[in-house]
Simulated assay, not measured.
Amino acid sequence: MEDIIVPLPVASAGYGPLRPSATEATTPLAIRALVLQSGDVRVAIVSAELLTPPSAMRRSLAGLLQELKVTELLVTATHTHSSMGSYEPSSLFQLGGVGRFRPAASQAVIAATSSALRRAVEALTPVSVELGEGSVPDLIVSRGRDEPQADARLTRLVFRHEQRKVAELSIFSAHPTLAPHKSRTLSGDYPGRYSRTMEEEGGVVLFLQGMVGNARAALPPREGDASSRDALFATLLTHAARGIHPTPVPAEGLAYTRVQVKLPRPDASRLVPVGLHGITENALCHLGPRQAEASRLSLGSASLLFMPAEVTLPAGRLIEDAGGATRVISLTGDYIGYLDSPEHVRNQSGESQLQYFGPELLETFVRAAALTTSSLEGPRPP
């Protein structure tokens, strides 16, 4: 784990093009890294307390990854809406969520990531893997009436050296929007507080967003003042996590595959008024990504599917089924917006009003999820 040395003042990410400039941070924003190795395959997972995964991260770290012999890199974002911005050179992202690009902000993120990766490689040690899962329906709610259900699972993937916990992947699904909106104070929101509290037991704890697209954290409206809601929620989530007792994963081993997909043409019919469809779609074609990746990481019988979007529950269920996966992980590698079900897209319901592409987007990633199973090499010995 490495704290980001934020070059204050900096844009506060998360709430559209009009955002304040942050001048302080309640808690440090962190980058956490876990490196897994089996044979000549060395996979690095990075969890960044940011709104989106930095799109240029793999390219920026190419030399370091070669030096550290990291063969695959998965960069995920906690999707924290009260985190720092200005780290993203993409004009589309600058307008939509992270503010005007500043090289110093990008360099701060890359420096913290580089340090976290070095620490993770230096800490490589033989481990056993444990998996546990529970349901916390009282802590999550769907964001809209069109899709009444949200993914209430809380999953813990724990790595131990002998009896000592050295790392954990905690997977949950809820937008981190509990910290005060449009504040001049940066915060890691509940994911950052959760990870730091869970790390008191030892090891590094990476927080990963699951089917976050239509999910928000649930707290009673008057429970705590605005400045403490994220801390309260992190306490409740930590308590729930400690009630889940992971058990050993059978047939341990490591396997990884990555599938590149061509994205369909953007569809702005739900994003803007009719008169702006053409110009918006042209801008998305010009500024947005044309390709994306779906990745699968298998650890024995546990497998994770990493997606570059905010995946909703109905979309995530289809992807998990197609890939035979334990969990879908959102916001990995790049950001292509929301990924909702074709039914919601056609009806202009659910979260599809924030989706940049038409109903064929989900079909594209369902096929990709299935391909990750057919092209997956057999698990290698730990």
Rank of each mutant, 00 (worst) to 15 (best):
L65R: 14
L117P: 00
R118S: 08
T71D: 06
A112E: 03
S115A: 13
V75M: 11
S115H: 06
G85D: 04
K69P: 00
Q66S: 11
V109L: 12
L92M: 14
T76V: 09
S106E: 15
S83D: 03
A62L: 09
S115G: 03
T125I: 14
G99V: 01
T71Y: 06
A77N: 04
A123T: 01
T71W: 04
G99S: 05
P103A: 04
A123V: 00
G97D: 09
A116D: 10
R100A: 15
I110S: 06
Q66L: 05
L65V: 14
M84V: 05
L117K: 00
Q107K: 13
G99K: 00
R100L: 15
A105P: 02
V109M: 07
E88K: 02
M84R: 03
E88T: 02
K69I: 00
V121C: 15
A104P: 03
L73V: 02
S82L: 02
A123W: 05
T125A: 14
V70H: 06
A77H: 03
R102W: 02
P89S: 06
S83C: 11
P89I: 03
E72V: 06
L68V: 05
G99D: 04
T76M: 11
Q94D: 08
A108F: 06
Y87A: 02
S106K: 11
L65Q: 13
Y87C: 02
Q107W: 07
R102A: 12
S82H: 04
L117G: 00
P89M: 06
Q107R: 14
A116V: 10
T113C: 06
E72H: 13
E122D: 15
A108S: 12
R100G: 14
T78F: 00
Q107Y: 08
V75I: 15
P126F: 11
A62E: 14
L95N: 13
V121W: 05
L124I: 07
T71F: 04
H79T: 12
I110V: 13
E122I: 09
I110D: 05
T80I: 05
A108W: 03
L95G: 13
L64S: 06
S106P: 01
S83R: 00
V98H: 00
R119G: 13
A116L: 10
A104E: 15
M84F: 12
S106I: 00
E67H: 08
A108M: 08
A120F: 03
G97M: 06
E122L: 14
S90N: 10
S115I: 07
A123D: 10
S106D: 09
Q107P: 01
T78C: 15
L92H: 02
A108Y: 09
G96M: 15
A123M: 04
A112S: 07
S91A: 15
E122S: 14
P126R: 07
S114D: 04
S114A: 13
Q94C: 08
A105C: 11
G63V: 07
H79D: 11
L65K: 10
L64M: 09
P89H: 06
T113L: 01
A123S: 13
M84Y: 07
L73N: 01
E122F: 13
T80E: 03
T125C: 14
L73D: 03
P126A: 09
T80N: 10
Y87S: 04
